[in-house]
């Protein structure tokens, strides 16, 4: 069977130019740079919280922000890998890490109950600011990831979109979390986690049209 005209092969071969193969570490370097840029932006616009290095931050501050960093790294790594398609590619690490992050709001819910959660939401006057800031600072990472995906050949577009949003929200919340001195579980579980959920949903729908090929 040889039905495709050989002229196609001739044409493609005549157009051949050397290419630099896609490398995982290039993508991760791009993500690392965008994360560093996000933290610098936070320092310039809001100023990082000095209480972190002065020993005034609570344990939950480190646990929550550590979770954001891990989820951001796992989701970003999955997205970077998706630029190079392969049957057998899986994104289980990112999914499990997102499940781990869900422990924050679940724990807050179990500790406070529905009434307590409502009260925590309505009485936190800085909550909305943190939510908006985390979401806003989360927009640096997807720019880098979308560029990377456009250079690549993603074949699971919905998953790529969701994970891009997840990485964006987690890295944005992590970076802004370094500036926020409110380190109670209810504040972190609600207002710092919400950008992650929001951007994951937004990414699911906004990213695929940008990276379709």
């Amino acid at each position: 069977m040889n039905r495709v005209p050989n002229s196609l092969i001739d044409t493609l071969a005549s157009e051949l130019e050397p290419v630099q193969p896609i490398r995982l570490w290039h993508g991760m370097a791009l993500v690392a740079l965008s994360a560093v840029a996000t933290v610098i932006l936070v320092e310039l616009l809001d100023g990082l919280w000095h209480g972190i290095v002065q020993g005034r931050a609570s344990g939950i501050f480190f646990i929550a922000n550590g979770m954001f960093a891990v989820v951001g790294a796992a989701a970003a790594l999955a997205v970077v890998r998706m630029a190079s398609p392969s049957v057998g590619n899986r994104q289980d690490g990112a999914r499990w890490s997102a499940g781990m992050l869900a422990l924050l709001p679940i724990s807050a819910g179990l500790m406070l109950g529905v009434g307590g959660l409502y009260s925590a939401i309505s009485s936190d006057i800085y909550g909305l600011d943190c939510f908006l800031a985390g979401t806003g600072f989360g927009l640096v990472t997807p720019a880098a990831l979308v560029l990377w995906l456009r250079r690549g050949a993603p074949v699971s577009l919905s998953a790529a979109g969701t994970l891009t949003g997840l990485a964006a929200g987690a890295i944005g919340s992590f970076a802004y979390g370094l500036a926020c001195p409110i380190d109670t579980i209810e504040h972190l579980a609600i207002w710092h986690t919400a950008p992650v959920a929001l951007l994951a949903v937004v990414g699911r729908y906004a990213v695929p049209p940008l990276v379709r090929w």
Binding site: L8, I9, I22, S84, P85, S86, R151, A153
Partner: peptide, 23 residues
């Protein structure tokens, strides 16, 4: 085949070829 041509840089030489083509 044209997609393979345009996206040939997305094959990572450290990984298998056929799973890339099949995807």
């Amino acid at each position: 085949m044209m997609a393979v041509h345009h996206k040939r840089a997305t094959w990572d030489p450290t990984r298998a070829f056929y799973p890339w083509l099949a995807a």
